[in-house]
Amino acid sequence: MTNTLDFFVLFLKSAVVAGTPLLFAIIGAIYNEKAGNLNLGIEGMMLLGAVAGFQAALSTQNPLASLLSACVFGALGALIYAFLTVTLRTNQVVTGLALTIFGSGMARFWGQNVMGQVLSESFSRYFRPLSFPFLAKIPILGPILSVFLEQDLFVYFGYAIAILSGIYLYNTRWGLNLRAVGGNTAAADASGINITLYKYVHILMGGALCGLGGAYLSVVFVPSWQENITAGRGWIAVALVIFTSWNPYKALWGALLFGGLDIVGFRIQSLNIPVNQYFLRMLPYLATLMVIIIGSIRKSSKHNPPKDLGNAYFREER
């Protein structure tokens, strides 16, 4: 009995870890989409952040420098996207794809000389999971709490970002304005909101968060450099935005669920249960496909995307 419980606690703990890059990316994508921009460059910005964070970690051995550089490079990718889609009003889908192509090329290029290198012990200790031995003494509640609390500081940062983003979106004036920008750009413009500024700021914020998500992969989760380290997680995040109906609080659960799917194959194999490993590796993608399909079948008015999502706004074309 305790063995099964231990197994589940361990499984959920690693699901939280595996879900953390997704969490950052989902929230980054939410900011983009709330500003009315469908950004398919999430994967590219994650890769930019992953390589920038890893390189900075390697050369400075400083965790803050690593996170900062991941933020900056994620946001730089977002800046290109924002300039093209907001100022030059290019097609958002194609521009996002271009950003992903650029980001993955950049990551491959910049990461080439550190391929397979592992971060030093002195750096990794900053991201060691906290431990609270007293939790083990509390029955039932203890193990559940330990799943979420016995994590590294980066994971805590993810919780904080999710909750702060929720408060920002639903309980502040800026958040209200932002939702207006994505929901009805023309009306927001008429009410005196600076559309361009709001779009730029939130697309850049989103990019910085995606960069952090990527950096979590390369700096904490793996933690060494490998090509295409995100393996489609950016795309899964784009799908999960729909799954979590553009809500940062729900993003916490979405990330946990898909973090679990990400590692379930690995766990099942360790139990020696004969399941096809290629099928297990397919699981997150299959599940994402299902999420999209089921989400589109049971559409409800409550969970609709921002109304002006994907529309380039030009005041004179109204």
Partner: peptide, 23 residues
């Protein structure tokens, strides 16, 4: 039929096909 997002569907099918061929 349902207006599902084709971008993500087509992309996910890439990964599924790739795992299938690898298998």
């Amino acid at each position: 039929r349902f207006g599902a997002n084709e971008t993500i569907m087509t992309l996910m099918l890439n990964y599924i096909a790739l795992q299938f061929i690898t298998y």
